Simulated scan of single mutants.
Amino acid sequence: MNMLDNETARGFHDALGAPARAADIDAADDVYGWLIGSWDMDVVHYRVDLGGARRRGEIHFGWVLEGRAVQDVWIMPPRGERHTGLAAADSMYGTTLRLWDPALRAWRVTYVNPLTGQRDELVGRRVGDDLVQIGTHADGTPIRWSFTDITRDTFRWSGMALAQDGVSWRLEAEFHARRRRA
Rank of each mutant, 00 (worst) to 15 (best):
D139L: 09
I25W: 10
I36H: 02
R47S: 07
P114M: 08
V73A: 11
T151S: 01
R181W: 02
M3I: 13
A182D: 13
V73N: 05
R126F: 06
T151F: 02
G37L: 08
D14I: 12
V73C: 10
G17I: 12
D26T: 12
V132E: 02
R82L: 13
W100S: 04
D120N: 09
F61L: 00
R156S: 05
L35Y: 00
E174Y: 03
R55L: 08
G57D: 06
Y111K: 07
R180M: 11
M41L: 14
G85E: 10
V43E: 02
L65N: 03
T148I: 00
M41W: 12
T95S: 07
R54H: 08
E58D: 13
S91M: 15
T96Y: 05
D14K: 10
L86A: 10
I150P: 01
V109C: 08
L99Y: 05
L35W: 06
M76C: 11
P19H: 00
E81R: 15
R126E: 07
R10A: 12
L86M: 14
V31W: 01
H13D: 11
V123R: 04
V73L: 14
A106D: 03
S91L: 15
G140C: 00
L4D: 08
M92W: 13
D129I: 09
D14F: 03
R144M: 03
R126K: 12
D5V: 15
P114D: 03
A161M: 10
A182L: 14
A89L: 14
I150Q: 00
A15T: 14
H45S: 07
R126M: 05
I36D: 01
D29M: 14
R156P: 02
E174G: 01
D14W: 04
I134K: 02
E172A: 09
Q118H: 13
D24P: 13
V31I: 15
E121M: 07
T95Y: 07
S91W: 14
D129G: 05
I36W: 04
L122E: 05
I75L: 13
A20T: 10
A163T: 02
T116I: 08
F147V: 00
V73P: 04
F12L: 15
P114F: 08
R79M: 14
G57I: 12
D30S: 06
I143Q: 03
D129C: 03
V109M: 12
M41F: 15
N2S: 03
F12E: 05
T96L: 14
S168P: 06
A138I: 10
L104I: 04
R105K: 14
R179W: 02
R47T: 09
H83K: 12
R47V: 08
V70M: 01
D130F: 03
D149M: 01
R144S: 00
A161F: 07
G85K: 08
W39H: 05
A23L: 15
A173R: 13
L171G: 01
W34F: 14
R125H: 06
L162D: 01
E66D: 13
P114N: 01
